[in-house]
């Protein structure tokens, strides 16, 4: 009997723990670099340098900031709901990390005689798992905004609720095309199905819809109405300072990595390389991480370019354009695959 989904474990339990720690550690090592990378790249896009004073090339900037944030006095508004105010950032970061467990960084390798899959878990319901945790991650934002007891936070949380719900539909539908083409829900299986051709060529419409919806899901510009620094002074995390703020920041970047990882897995062939290049197995994680970084670069590029959408534009784009497009893409794919 399978309780929730078929999870194919073939490693001993201690390898799974090591694997989880390594993935978690590497991801958390990349995160601070990402923050400084984003700010430096954003600076270049705007004709300036970005942070370059702390350490060589400003690379020590995140370290200085983490020390600063961690030593801040914890405080919360008197109107806030105490335990929810503390739990909310934890939910945000927990769901982001849970999503990361699914991104396959490589195929099954033999390390010291043990067969090890270079991914957290390989469940038979891959994308559903991702969307389940994306659905929970919205509680992190919602509870954080609501329990702050501040109007700005509350408005940000309300916007987040509406935005995430309306974009999650098209995001999920855009992936169904890929799932139909691959014929499997397992993410490693989907990567294996892309040996002939990466799915962004046959599923280009789906890829576009997925990317647009991902920008909205991760609350990135031009869909950052949730944060909207200019009007909402930061949105749902207005009242957070110190570690709570860092948790939300890291959750946002982690979500960006997860979404990029899913995009790489679903549309850009995961650890596969084009032109029939087959490097040895240990190169796979590097390939995946480089692809993820390219996607994040694209995220930053978009942020530097596009202004924030108006709220009604956001809604009409989601419901009137992306959802019909995703449905049409799904129907055409289904007909083509079935015939």
């Amino acid at each position: 009997m399978t309780p929730f989904a078929l999870v194919t474990y073939f490693e001993p339990w201690w390898i799974q723990i090591i694997k989880a720690l390594v993935i978690f550690g590497v991801a958390f090592a990349i995160l601070p670099i990402l923050t400084v990378y984003e700010r430096k790249l954003l600076g270049r896009f705007q004709g300036r340098y970005g942070p370059n004073r702390v350490g060589p090339f400003g690379l020590m900037q995140p370290l200085a900031e983490i020390v600063k944030f961690a030593t801040k006095e914890p405080s919360r508004p008197t109107t806030s709901v105490g335990y929810l105010f503390r739990i909310a950032p934890a939910i945000a970061i927990l769901t982001a990390v849970a999503g990361l467990a699914l991104v396959p960084f490589g195929d099954v390798q033999t390390i010291f005689g043990y067969r090890v899959g270079l991914y957290g878990i390989d469940v038979s319901v891959g994308p559903l798992y991702v969307f389940a945790f994306a659905g929970i991650s919205f509680y992190g934002i919602m509870l954080g905004g609501w329990s702050s007891g501040s109007k700005y936070s509350f408005l940000g949380a309300m916007r987040a609720a509406a935005q995430l719900i309306s974009y999650e539909v098209s995001q999920a539908l855009s992936l169904v095309g890929v799932i139909i083409t691959a014929g499997t829900l397992s993410l490693t299986g989907i990567v294996h199905a892309q040996r002939g051709m990466w799915f962004f060529i046959p599923q280009f419409a789906g890829f576009l819809v997925f990317m647009l919806a991902s920008f909205a899901e991760t609350n990135r510009a031009p869909f950052d109405l949730v944060e909207a620094d200019a009007e909402l002074v930061g949105g749902y995390f207005t009242e957070y300072g110190g570690t709570g703020f860092v948790a939300y920041l890291f959750a946002e970047y982690m979500n960006m990595m997860v979404v990029s990882g899913i995009a790489v897995t679903m549309f850009f062939g995961g650890w596969l390389l084009p032109f029939g290049i087959h490097p040895p197995g240990w190169v796979d994680p590097i390939v995946v991480i480089v692809k993820i970084l390219l996607f994040i670069t694209f995220f930053i590029w978009i942020r530097a370019t596009l202004p924030r959408l108006r709220y009604d534009q956001l809604m009409s784009l989601g419901w009137k354009i992306l959802l019909p497009l995703a449905t049409l893409n799904l129907l055409v794919t289904a007909i083509l695959v079935a015939s």
Binding site: R44, F45, Q46, R48, Y49, W301, T305
Partner: peptide
């Protein structure tokens, strides 16, 4: 996107 990328090519004016 082309406009912003041209800024990278141009280099910072700081």
């Amino acid at each position: 996107l082309k406009t912003t990328f041209a800024r990278i090519v141009e280099g910072p004016s700081t």
